[in-house]
C-alpha cells in the first residue's frame, strides 16, 4: 500500500494579526505549523499503513525550502519518506497550479494507492487542491472523509461527512481523499521519532525534475490572484432587545412586523 499525504505549511493562525493599514497578514514572528487538517490526513495515512500491516507513507509538500521543518515533523509522527517540491518557478501558485505541481510530483513518485490531504488549508480555506489533484491524475476523489471502514481487493469503503448525516461509499483505488477532523485523534511525536526525523534526508524536486509544462506553474499558471485581503468592517447600529427570551422575541416580532415583514405559520405535511 503506497500512501501519499500532501501537507501545507501555514502560519499558526492562533497567532495571526492583520496589519490594519495594509490589511495584510503580519507574517513576521509568526510560527509556521502543518495545516491542522493535514495533520489528521497524516495520522490517517499512518493508521492505514499500520492497519494494512505494511506499505509506505510518503509526505509531500510544495513550498519554500523552510517547509522541510514541517516535513520533518511529519516524519516524527510516522511518515516514512518526505519529498519537498521547491522551485522559484512554483512561487505564487493558486490552487490550480499547486494541484498541477503536486500531481506531477505524485506521478513521478509512482504507484500511489491512496492520496490524503486535509479538507482545506486554514490560510486559504479553498478546499480545492484535493479534488484538483485527482482531476490532474484522472482518478476519483472523495472529500470530507470522516471514517475509513475497509480497504480490500483494490477497493476502499469509507464514510463521507455531509451537513446532516453521512454517505457510505465504496470506491476503486487509487483515490484522492480529503479528511475532516472527526476522522481520528492525531498522535503526539515520540522522542525516537524526533531523532529519526532530524537525521532523515528530505528529497527535493524542482521544476526540471518533473514532467511538466512550465507555463502551468506558479504565478504564470495561476488564473486566480489575490487582489486584497481585508477584515470585513464591523456592522454598525443594531438594536438589543432586553429581558427574557420570550419577551425579547415578542418585541423583535413586533418590530419586524412594524417594518412590514409578515409571519405566517408553515402548513403541516
Amino acid at each position: 500500500m503506497n500512501i501519499v499525504v500532501c501537507i501545507k505549511q501555514v502560519p499558526d493562525t492562533t497567532d495571526v494579526k492583520i496589519n490594519p493599514e495594509t490589511n495584510t497578514l503580519i507574517r513576521e514572528g509568526v510560527a509556521s505549523i502543518i495545516n491542522p487538517f493535514d495533520v489528521y490526513a497524516l495520522e490517517e495515512g499512518v493508521r492505514i499503513k499500520e492497519r494494512q500491516g505494511g506499505g509506505t507513507v510518503t509526505v509531500m509538500s510544495m513550498g519554500p525550502p523552510q517547509a522541510d521543518v514541517s516535513l520533518r515533523e511529519a516524519i516524527s509522527v510516522g511518515a516514512d519518506e518526505a519529498i519537498l517540491l521547491s522551485d522559484r518557478a512554483f512561487a505564487g501558485a493558486d490552487t490550480l497550479a499547486t494541484a498541477y505541481t503536486l500531481a506531477a510530483g505524485i506521478k513521478k513518485l509512482g504507484d500511489a494507492d491512496i492520496i490524503l490531504m486535509g479538507r482545506q488549508a486554514i490560510d486559504g480555506d479553498t478546499g480545492q487542491v484535493g479534488p484538483e489533484v485527482a482531476e490532474n491524475m484522472g482518478i476519483p476523489h472523495i472529500t470530507d472523509v470522516r471514517k475509513i471502514e475497509e480497504i480490500k481487493d483494490g477497493y476502499i469503503t469509507l464514510e463521507r461527512m455531509l451537513e446532516e448525516g453521512y454517505v457510505r461509499l465504496k470506491v476503486k483505488l487509487p483515490i484522492v481523499m480529503t479528511v475532516v477532523k472527526e476522522i481520528n485523534e492525531p498522535r503526539l511525536p515520540s522522542l525516537r521519532g524526533k531523532m529519526n526525523a532530524k537525521k532523515k534526508e528530505i528529497t527535493v524536486w524542482g521544476a526540471p525534475d518533473l514532467d511538466i509544462n512550465t507555463q502551468r506553474l506558479g504565478l504564470t499558471g495561476s488564473p486566480t490572484q489575490v487582489v486584497k485581503i481585508f477584515t470585513p468592517p464591523k456592522p454598525e447600529g443594531g438594536k438589543i432587545f432586553e429581558g427574557g427570551a420570550s419577551e425579547a422575541v415578542n418585541e423583535l416580532i413586533k418590530e419586524l412586523q412594524g417594518a412590514g415583514i409578515r409571519f405566517g405559520r408553515k402548513k403541516e405535511g
Partner: peptide
C-alpha cells in the same frame, strides 16, 4: 510510553 518518555 508512546512518546518514549520512560526511555529517557
Amino acid at each position: 510510553g508512546d512518546a518514549d518518555l520512560y526511555r529517557v
